[in-house]
Amino acid sequence: MSTKIIQHDINLEPFMSKSPDFNRKSILMQTERSFKSEIINIITLTALEKLFHIRISDHFERENFSFLPGQFVMLHLPGCGEVPISISSSVSNKEYIELCIRKVGKVTGMIHRLEPGAIVGIRGPFGTHFPVQKMTGCDVLLIAGGLGIAPLRSPIYWINEHRSKYRDISIMYGARDPDQVLFDYQFEEWKKIYGLKLLTIVQNAGKNWKGRVGLITDLFKEITIDPENTFAIVCGPPVMFKFVCAHLSDVGIPRHRMFVSLERRMHCGMGKCCRCNVGSTFTCLDGPIFDYWTVMNLKEAI
């Protein structure tokens, strides 16, 4: 009698032959396979930031790709590396996604050298999202600092597309220098959205800056907050959201109604590599969007 162990071919498992669907987290699938995508447009925002329009090449994969505001993708450049980037476009745009990328490391430096037509890989979407459905019937404060405006564009689009579900909307955006203000070409458009207040401020005003000068927290003087019916979305450097959330907390907004986005250098996006470990949890699975109560109770989060 033979004792050769029969091979278990996992390629025969139900979802292993299909293109991966990263929204179905519990299914065994080809998690390493990325969607081949084309960079269809590049918009230069500042000296360091560019906005990439990326279109998943395969028709089926493109149709199947769906995300919620706040989620991120792993952008892969074969032979170079993979980086986690927040999606910066509207969930209803089924043609392409927009990724705002700052040139800061090796991979992002290489991505900045690409031209339209280049083929990259996309895996995702991963992570948690801003609970935009829960915010129905309430005021929403969207507060961004610097590059933090990039992940905020997605909820801004969402609110615009579901405008009747929300009450007053305030967007507060602070940057260090006027030439670091991102998406200023969209400000006029956003201001025209019904019941939306857009406030911008810079720390160091140059010659041409005609707007407000100061810290983002100075903008709170200009708005009134109804603490019982307000949700806040805060995105930016940790030191910024520490002060902003402290202020919002003083006003009376419960901490579990403030949402922040944390950033770490993830290597997998799937809770396996541990590189994005904060305190007792992982940024890729339980984050990147956390409510502030959770963040306060996580060690070394900010």
Partner: peptide, 14 residues
């Protein structure tokens, strides 16, 4: 947990 790892799965099964 989320996103079962196919490589690990294959090794474990075999």
């Amino acid at each position: 947990s989320a996103y079962p790892n196919p490589y690990y799965f294959a090794r474990r099964k075999n």
